[in-house]
Nucleic acid binder design. Structure first.
Lengths: 150, 150
DNA sequence: ATAATTTAAATTGTGCACAACTTAATTGTT
DNA sequence: AACAATTAAGTTGTGCACAATTTAAATTAT
């Protein structure tokens, strides 16, 4: 393993800039939907699984309440979601799509196509890259497990 | 190209979480150096190229003055760097390592080794992943070029 | 040479991201 | 049943990240 302090040789830096630049690509696409990138991720979860509670939402997105509480508050202000306490467990806050929030899904349907068009990437490469990224996360989780064990 | 709105199928989401989780891995490693992840990236650049100006620093890290100005101010407070106006162009601010900042390099030398150990990754895989990430960035830049052309 | 344009930093404002803490509800234990 | 421990959200504080604006210096054009 090459060990230097050169910026370009560090995988963390490449991940960090690739993520930032890809997010930048989304900005103009999401602007007409009136969503930031993080808000878009929350909407993706809700379109899949409406009526999820904040805790589960945070687990899916790797975000804690310190990030999600104010973010959801903004989505409420826009009018895409509403929240209420769960009846069977008063600690839990359930997030639900409003009609406008559900309707937005139609508009968002072609976002992935737009993005892959911009990236100009073929299916096989796309799949290979997805596997690499999930593998990196697996390695990170494995390390977390090993740490927790002892 | 599979086109769904499923969170896990979106490359942006995988990049975003992989980047966040890898950064989380760095936190405890960088804590004894008294650096955040972004501050660490700035120090990496300076250890390579001391006396760089803010503009070039921003180009290397894809960060603008709105991020870098306060970040460098914090590095000055810690005592790792100092800044001064360039003599030949008074607009430019040059950032230089202090003795403490230079000395920190020794301590940082084994950070990459610690990280790759935690990731438990072999050289060939590491190289493949780096190539994937630079390819993603190339595709992003290529799109930027195409946009600018017309 | 002067005016217009461009460039470099800094500042302001918004929105994440996360650690640390608080509050309230639920679950477990004795 | 009463108390302790755990869990879910929310709040506070710090530090990015970036758009938009401001200020000052340097270039370019006329």
């Amino acid at each position: 393993m090459e060990q230097t302090l050169k910026l370009e040789h560090q995988i963390c830096f490449q991940l960090y800039t690739a993520s930032k630049e890809l997010t930048r690509l989304y900005r103009p696409i999401l602007e007409p939907l009136n969503l930031t990138y993080s808000q878009y991720l929350v909407m993706l979860v809700l379109w899949e699984e409406d009526g999820i509670d904040l805790r589960q939402l945070g687990t899916r997105l790797t975000l804690d309440s310190g990030t999600l509480s104010p973010l959801v508050k903004r989505l409420i202000q826009i009018g895409y979601v509403e929240k209420s306490r769960s009846s069977d467990d008063e600690r839990k806050v359930v997030v639900r799509l409003t009609d406008r929030g559900s309707a937005l899904r139609e508009q968002a349907m072609d976002v992935p196509l737009q993005v892959s068009g911009m990236l100009n990437i073929d299916e096989a490469t796309y799949v290979a890259y997805m596997e690499m990224l999930t593998d990196i996360k697996t390695r990170l989780h494995d390390f977390g497990e090993r740490q927790r064990e002892q």
